[in-house]
Design a protein around this nucleic acid. Structure first.
Lengths: 281, 281
DNA sequence: GGGTATTTGTCCGTATGTATT
DNA sequence: AAATACATACGGACAAATACC
């Protein structure tokens, strides 16, 4: 009872949305109509809408109206290798998902289309994260390859792979070319330099996007939608880090799976809507 | 130039915060002082503060003031097993982190203290997620054990493990007792029923907390801080799901690591502040 | 405990700007 | 160009939470 009016209005609208009375994509009544309906001022109605906006339930479009958000069909990526993959020519080579054709196959299996831009290549001096993860001194030259990935035409991930410049000097010239390496850089480095990726470590965090990232992913500027930042450090057969890949994925459209030990196949994707009964009380 | 006044005020304050002129925990000037300082109305100043609030840079406390947020020292959990763990008596038994003593050891190694509540046990009929993951018919009885976990006194995770009731009927009576199973339920089920956990699948999503979850974790009600929801389905030696554990972790204080293949040890934790140079342009 | 000053929270009304149709 | 709808900005009033005496 003690809850303020704008919260009560928000709650009322929320129930309409979650009951389905207002379906995704549908336009709400205008602020002036809601003002009359609830007998409140327009500012109070706007406070209610702002609350629903930060909850991610509605979005406002200037000049158009307020709309119930359409939930994006999430895409599920597996961070561990596919156990049933054909053994490589070199059996020690360990390919992660998205490294080679696996990723495309996973997308196709879900009847969705993937697309990625040509890499944007940059040579810079290692600093901070890159230096520490690649275990090189600060200032050591590294090659960074940026790529944007799309699924069904919507922006899905931003990827930056960094390699020690030394690999290029040893013959991996294609790393500095701004073109896709079709067989995958992991295989390329294996054939070119006999550098075998025998393992990797993924470091998973969530943070707010900066302005440019929010623009690219088409998420709000104010940080309501977070980004997974997954840092993959890959190691060669000598235990030396050969690559750092940092990939950003919006949390509103991405999920991940980690398989450990012996796990059965999954063809069916469990309902991701299910909230489960998890009270904190 | 075209940016609205409240954004300019917010930007000015943001620079002061990020430059260190306003240090974490410090109180900002009051809304009335800021109003005079910027020559704006109090409501416009409040819009600026609200913007910074959703960005997670400041927090307001009624009756006290507005403060620069203190960042929480994140805790890092590893989702894959420790490769150097002593082999089990039964070598097929595969323990994940947090299952047994590993979790406590990981906390202690970081010089932090862990604590967890006695489990709250509940018997309910499987539905939705639980039924599909445990591969039982809807309505089948299951045992759910809820636990709250704390690190350094602050709430860290909410865990709900669900087991088919059949396991209890077959002799695993301690599952329905509201007390901790010190050796871990994985070992208990192995010794008690010869049920060996040979693998598990983790499903990682991020979602907004509900009201009770936000209260427990002491995060804002409006969903600015998301929760990792990690669903672990564990399989026995016959490939049958024996357990579903759903754990909730606030994204503002938790990070995860996944090790695949051969990876070297890490004693040093890389700087988590490092933003890296990842432009979306 | 009570009272008071301070500070943020809620709510109102109004005017004007900007984006879209 | 006009109409519509949300965005920004102002000013005022009172409520609620907190701190301090």
């Amino acid at each position: 009872m003690a809850s303020p009016m704008y919260r009560q209005i928000a709650e009322n609208l929320r129930e309409q949305i979650e009951s389905g009375a207002l379906h995704p994509g549908q336009q709400l009544r205008t602020e002036l109509e809601l003002r009359d309906h609830y007998g409140a001022s327009r500012n109070t109605v706007r406070d209610a809408i702002k609350w629903l906006t930060t909850l991610g339930l509605v979005e406002t479009r200037p000049g158009q109206g307020t709309f119930v958000v359409r939930k994006i069909d999430p895409f599920v990526s597996t961070l561990t290798p596919d156990p049933k993959r054909e053994p490589e020519e070199d059996s020690r080579l360990l390919l992660g998902p998205g490294e080679g054709e696996t990723y495309r196959a996973e997308v196709a299996r879900r009847l969705r289309t993937s697309d990625k831009t040509e890499p944007q290549v940059e040579i810079l001096k290692a600093s901070g994260l890159i230096a520490s993860q690649l275990q090189v001194a600060e200032g050591t030259p590294v090659v960074s390859r940026h790529q944007k990935r799309y699924i069904d035409g919507t922006p899905w991930s931003l990827e930056t792979s960094s390699y020690p410049m030394e690999l290029v000097n040893r013959g991996a010239r294609r790393l500095i070319l701004a073109e896709n390496i079709e067989e995958g850089t992991v295989r390329y480095l294996a054939t070119c330099l006999d550098l075998q990726q025998v393992g990797y470590r993924d470091w998973i965090t969530v943070r707010a996007p900066d302005g440019a990232e929010a623009t690219f992913f088409n998420v709000p500027q104010d940080g309501r939608v977070g980004l997974y930042e997954i840092r993959r450090t890959a190691f060669d057969q000598n235990g030396i880090p050969m690559r750092l890949t940092v990939t950003l994925y919006p949390t509103d459209r991405n999920q991940f799976i980690v398989n450990v030990g012996e796990v059965p196949e999954t063809d069916s994707v469990p309902a991701s809507d299910e909230q489960g009964a998890l009270a904190a009380g």
